[in-house]
């Protein structure tokens, strides 16, 4: 006997993500899910952002890693309120884990919450956490073939930060190829070429973030 169901899988995660999204909307807190390979510079970008514009935006961070609270310590040192989720082996965060972390950082009183996902270009893209936008970081040393190899992650991105742009003269990396590939996956993707270490290009990202946080807060007022 065959039974046709056509039931959505992972609907528990989706239901929880919808609740998180409502929480962020009600509190006018802009939530960004930051996804990349390990070592692309997510933590450095977030820390630099907190250092440079933390006086203009109240920023909190939910850190996801398989082990250790190294990243939470780093962003706290930069001045952010932060909570670490240790996934103990799981390769991505779930919406439920994020719900649990929000009260720990007093997310309702913040302007922006960054969720720094576990470093991985595959699994995090399948799990909606309730964010308003996805930020994907691609660093120059990773190579220019990553959008073609991991299209799912790049197709669902709203912002692409091409990090470590200060290294571009030393590495065989075609910016044109990256931009052409991501534009074919997502024509309206916002792209910023940055170096979180030198500060190059970061102002464009800050302007986008502040405008987006302002628009989002204004929507409900």
């Amino acid at each position: 006997m065959k039974v046709a169901l056509n039931k959505k899988i992972l609907d528990k995660n989706t239901e929880c993500a919808i609740r998180n999204k409502a929480f962020f909307r009600d509190n006018k807190t802009l939530c960004l899910n930051v996804i990349s390979s390990p070592g692309s510079g997510k933590t450095t970008i977030i820390s630099k952002t907190v250092t440079d514009i933390g006086d203009k935006l109240k920023i909190g961070v939910v850190e996801g890693d398989i082990k250790t609270d190294i990243d939470a310590q780093k962003v706290r040192a930069a001045g952010a309120v932060a909570v670490q989720i240790e996934t103990r082996g799981a390769c991505h965060l779930t919406a439920e884990q994020v719900t649990g972390a929000l009260s720990a950082i007093g997310a309702g009183d913040l302007d922006v919450v960054f969720i720094e996902n576990v470093g991985n270009l595959v699994c995090p893209s399948a799990f909606d956490l309730g964010e308003q936008a996805r930020v994907v970081v691609l660093s120059v040393p990773e190579g220019d073939d990553k959008p073609a190899k991991y299209p799912g992650t790049f197709a669902k991105a709203d912002v692409l930060l091409i990090n470590k742009i200060d290294l571009i003269d030393y590495i065989d990396f075609s910016l044109d190829r990256v931009i052409a590939d991501v534009r074919s996956l997502k024509p309206k993707l916002e792209i910023f070429q940055v170096s979180a270490t030198t500060g190059e290009g970061m102002q464009g990202w800050y302007d986008w973030l502040q405008a987006r946080a302002r628009d989002f807060a204004g929507q409900k007022s």
Partner: peptide
């Protein structure tokens, strides 16, 4: 032409179960 819109990706579905 290389100018196109990508259609929405299919969702993750449990389509059918076969029972004994």
């Amino acid at each position: 032409s290389t100018d196109f819109d990508i259609n929405p990706d299919a969702p993750l579905l449990l389509e059918e179960i076969e029972f004994e």
